[in-house]
Design a protein around this nucleic acid. Sequence first.
DNA 1: AGGTAAGCGAGACGGTACGTCGTGTCTTTTG
DNA 2: CAAAAGACACGACGTACCGTCTCGCTTACCT
Lengths: 203, 203, 203, 203
Amino acid sequence: MTEDVPIAETRRGRPRSAAAHQAVLAATARLLTCGDLEYDDLTVEGIAAEAGVGKQTIYRWWPQKAAVVLEALLTGHLQLDFAQVPDTGDLRADLHTWVDQTLDEAFTEGYRSMARSLISALLAGAAHNEGFQAVTRIWEDSPVADRLRQEREAGHLRADLDASSAAAAIASPLVLRLLTSGRPEAAWAHALVDTALDGARTR
Amino acid sequence: MTEDVPIAETRRGRPRSAAAHQAVLAATARLLTCGDLEYDDLTVEGIAAEAGVGKQTIYRWWPQKAAVVLEALLTGHLQLDFAQVPDTGDLRADLHTWVDQTLDEAFTEGYRSMARSLISALLAGAAHNEGFQAVTRIWEDSPVADRLRQEREAGHLRADLDASSAAAAIASPLVLRLLTSGRPEAAWAHALVDTALDGARTR
Amino acid sequence: MTEDVPIAETRRGRPRSAAAHQAVLAATARLLTCGDLEYDDLTVEGIAAEAGVGKQTIYRWWPQKAAVVLEALLTGHLQLDFAQVPDTGDLRADLHTWVDQTLDEAFTEGYRSMARSLISALLAGAAHNEGFQAVTRIWEDSPVADRLRQEREAGHLRADLDASSAAAAIASPLVLRLLTSGRPEAAWAHALVDTALDGARTR
Amino acid sequence: MTEDVPIAETRRGRPRSAAAHQAVLAATARLLTCGDLEYDDLTVEGIAAEAGVGKQTIYRWWPQKAAVVLEALLTGHLQLDFAQVPDTGDLRADLHTWVDQTLDEAFTEGYRSMARSLISALLAGAAHNEGFQAVTRIWEDSPVADRLRQEREAGHLRADLDASSAAAAIASPLVLRLLTSGRPEAAWAHALVDTALDGARTR
DNA sequence: AGGTAAGCGAGACGGTACGTCGTGTCTTTTG
DNA sequence: CAAAAGACACGACGTACCGTCTCGCTTACCT
C-alpha cells in the first residue's frame, strides 16, 4: 500500500511509528467488525479517535479512507474468508453443502454488516483506485476454485476448464445476493452449482 | 417505491405534486447521465437545485438519496439495461457476442461511472431497506435469462433449468468485475458462457 | 385589528369563523403564558396547531406573528399589567413598595418569560409597524402615572409635572433591567423613586 | 465573552486563530453598519461568508448569533455610544441639549436599525445568558452618569445621589422610545431631565 | 553532545453537505 | 366559498466530516 522503497535512502527525522500504523489498521477492523458501522459510516476522524492517533497521521500514510480499509483487508486485520469446501468425494454434494453454509453464515447478522463493509469499501475504492482489483480474488480465488482445480487435475472435470471463471459463476451471484439483503432460496443456489457442473444444455 | 395503496382513502390537503416528483427523478437522471457526476458526488441539494424543487420535497418522499436513484432506475428515467442478446440461432455464439458487447459498453467511460452509481446506490440502500432487492432484477432478469427460457422451451436446454440462476451465473461475475475496474480477459468471460452451457464436468 | 363589520350584508358561502379568530388569540396567549415558550420560539405553525386552525387562516388576518401577539396583548388575552400602587398616604413609601413588588413579581420565573415575550414581540413588531407604539403605554401609563397625576391634583406635586414622563423615569429603567436578567439592588431601585420625587439637586 | 482564564494551562492542538476571531467581529459590524441589514436579517452564514470563515468557527466560539453581536459591541467593533454631554456650566441646559442630540441621532435612519440590532441581540441573548447583563452599561454608564458624578463631587448635586440610577431615569425612557419607533416630543424628554434634577415634589 | 529534520497527538481552520425547521404561498377537499 | 389540511419553493439552522494547517512535543539520525 505505502511505497516502502527505502533504496538505501536513509530518511531523516523521526521514523514512522509502526505502533501508530498498526493502531490505525486495528481500529479500522475493530470499527467495521464489532460496531454496527457500515463503510459509509466509517469516518477518518472516527478511526483516528479509536486508534488514539492524530488525523494527520492517517492522511500522511494513506491517500483515502478506502486505502486504509483495503490495507486492513490485505494484511488480515479484517477477515472475510469463505468457508472451506468439505470433501466427501462427492463434488456436487460438497458444493451444495458449501453454498448452504455460505448463505447461513452470510445471513448471520454480524457477518453481513462486515461483508457489506467490505464490498462497500471495494466499490468506493475500486472506482478510483487500480489497486483494489485485488478484492475480486476473494470470490474468484475462493476455496471453490481450489477444489475445482483439484478435481480437474484428478480428471473429473474438463481438462480445459477455467476454474476461476467457473468458481465465479457460483460465488459471484451469491455475493451479489448477499449485498442486496434478500436471501435467495436454496433451490436457486443449488441450481447454480448444478448449472456450473452439468451445464444448461441437455446432455 | 412510494406506497400507492389507493384504498379509496381520499387524502386531505394539497395533493402531492406529480410535476415535482417527475422533476426530481428527471434531474437525478440528468445529473448522473450527462454530467461528470459520480453517485458519491451527487447531492440532495444538487438534485433539488437542478429540479427546481425544495430540498424538503425530496426528503418528504424519499428516505435517502439512494432511494431516489433507485426509483429513477426502476422507472426508467435512468437507463442501465444490458444489451439485447443477438439471435443467430447459435446460442453459444450469441452469448459470446453479448458478453463481448456488454464488456465493451461497460468499460466505456461514461457508462461506467453511471453503473457504479447504480451499485453504490444499491448497496447503501439495500443494506437497510427491503425494497432495494428489486435491483437484483437488473442482472438476474437480464436479456440472457429471457433467451435461456426461450431456448429451454424450444427444447434446446434442460427442461428443469433454472433460467434465472443460469443467467446469474453469467451476468453476476461480469457485474462484479465491472465494479472493480479491472476489465476481465475475453477468454475468462467466454469461459463463463461455456461453463454455463456445457458444465464443468466431462461429458 | 381585523375589520369585523358584518353590516347585515349577508355573505355567501361559509361565514368567517369568529371562533377561529378567538382560538388563535387564545392559543397565542396560552403558549406564551403556560408553556416555557419564548417569543422567538413561538411559531405560526405552532399557533395554528394549538388553535386547531389552518396556517392560512392566520396569514389571512394578520400580517405577521408580532401582530397576533400584539392583538392578544391589546385584547387582554395576554395580561401583562403592573401591580397597583398601594395608597397609605405616604407617596414615597408607596412607590418604594410598588417598586419592590414589581421586582419581586418580575423576577418570578413564570412572569419573566412572559414579559420578555412581550418585549421581544414589541421590538420585532415595532421596528416595522407603527401600530406597535401602543406598547409603550404599558409602562408610561402605568399605575404609577395615575398615582402621580392624582397627587399632582391634590397639590402635593408640582403643578406643571409631566406625570407620564416622571412615571417613565421610574418604570423604564425597571423594564430594561427586567429584560437583561440582572435583578437590580433594592437601593438602586429606591434611588429611582427618590430622584424622581426629590430631584438630584440639593434642595 | 470567551473565558480567558490563563491558568498556565497550555492548550494542546492548534491555537485559536486571532485573525479569524477579529474577522468575525469585523464582518458582523460591517454587515450591521454599512449594509441595510437589520439584526433579524443577519445570519450566521452571512457573517461567516463576509468574514471568509467557516461557519463552524463561529459556532465553536460563540453559542449564538446574539453573543457575536454583543462581543462586537463590547469590543468596540460595533459603535453604539451616546453623544457626549456638552459642558457649558449649566447642567440643565447641557442635559436638554444632550437629550435633543440623542433623539436626533437616534431617529436618523441608519442609526435606528443598528440600535434595534443591539437591543434585539440583547433580548434574545439576555433571556438566557448571564453575560449579557453588561449591555445595561450602555445607558446606565452613559456620559450622563459621568457628568452627574462630576457635578455631585463639585457639590452641585446631593451628596448621596446614586448617579447610575439618576442617569438611568433619563436614558432608559429614551432607549425604550427609540425601540418602539415613536419619537417622543421634546417637551416630554426635557421633562425627564427636569424631573431628574428638580424632582416631582414642590420645593 | 547538540542540532535538526521529520513524525507524533491534538485540535482549529475554511469548506461542503447534511437533514430539519419555519416562512409565506398554493391547491386540494370538506362543511 | 371560507376553513382545514398539508404540499410547495425557499433559505437558515446547527452538526458532522472533509482534508489542511499549526501548535508543542518526541525521536533518532548527523554532524
